[in-house]
């Protein structure tokens, strides 16, 4: 019921941001990783985050997930502050991420990896209720695993399959906002197409997304809006074409593209 009233007030005030980041600062010792970052993502929107290595994109993800704590600034999800929450509590609020380097459970097969993602955060239920193999198979298939992959272990999977596995485990937590970190890195052309197709499906299903990628060609059709950052701050913001037309962005990007 709190949910309903909050949604209503949002509509009234016309501030229906799924996620809002305000003046986010993260310092490592004396080093500034993000400097007064502010941006919003609306429900169902797909935002692209671009910038050179070390610009602070992954740091932003870690801050949103609570894996790192910000030095100052706020992070709100549907207008409620989440900065004080721990990582698993933020995931329970429907925020989930993937990593540049996939981190599977090495001694578990594909279905068991997904099983961990499906577990409720309640030890009693974990013990008393049986796992749900149908849901595991459904998730594995939804990211494109074939039946003979189900019992494979991560050491037998390609980097593309590992990304799919991580996506499946992330989807298993039933997120409404996904942070995708370099989803195309290390994939073959065919795998990139497959991954893009998957992301598009999720977009059409209404998932809110923030996508980080160096592969701008693959990224462009997947996003509604882009933010370019450098040195921990926003350089340009707007449609993909606008951002790419920006002087500063061109200066940083034309160097290495």
């Amino acid at each position: 019921m709190a949910e309903v009233s909050r949604r209503k007030s949002r509509r009234d005030l016309n501030v229906s941001h799924h996620l809002e980041v305000n003046n986010l600062v993260k310092m490592f010792g004396g080093l500034i990783a993000t400097n007064e970052m502010s941006f919003q993502v609306d429900e169902g929107e797909s935002l692209g985050l671009i910038g050179p290595n070390g610009a602070g994109k992954t740091t932003i993800f870690s801050l949103i997930m609570g894996e790192l704590r910000q030095t100052s600034g706020s992070i709100t999800c549907f207008d409620s502050e989440i900065s004080h929450l721990q990582t698993h509590e933020r995931i329970q609020r429907g925020i989930s991420r993937t990593y540049q380097v996939p981190r599977p459970f090495a001694d578990m097969n594909v279905l068991e990896n997904i099983r961990v993602g499906l577990m409720p955060d309640n030890i009693w239920q974990m013990i008393m209720r049986r796992p749900d193999p149908e849901r595991e198979i459904e998730l594995a298939q939804s990211v494109g695993f074939a039946e003979n992959d189900f019992l494979r272990h991560p050491s037998e999977l390609s980097i593309g399959d590992l990304r799919k596995l991580e996506l499946a485990r992330t989807l298993a937590t039933d997120p409404s906002l996904m942070l995708l970190d370099e989803v195309f890195a290390g994939l073959t052309v065919a795998e990139i197409a497959q991954m893009a197709e998957l992301i598009n499906q999720k977009r059409e299903a209404g998932m809110t997304m923030i996508i980080v990628s160096h592969d701008l060609k693959s990224l462009e059709p997947l996003i509604d809006r882009a933010i370019a950052m450098n040195y921990g701050a926003i350089v340009a913001e707007g449609s993909f074409a606008d951002v790419m037309a920006d002087e500063q962005v061109r200066a940083t990007y034309l160097g290495d593209e």
Partner: peptide, 20 residues
């Protein structure tokens, strides 16, 4: 699944946290 979750911690604790 509790046993599975404990073994998962042994393999990669961050990913268990990342599974909520």
């Amino acid at each position: 699944r509790f046993g599975t979750a404990l073994s998962a911690i042994g393999m990669n604790e961050e990913s268990v946290r990342g599974s909520g």
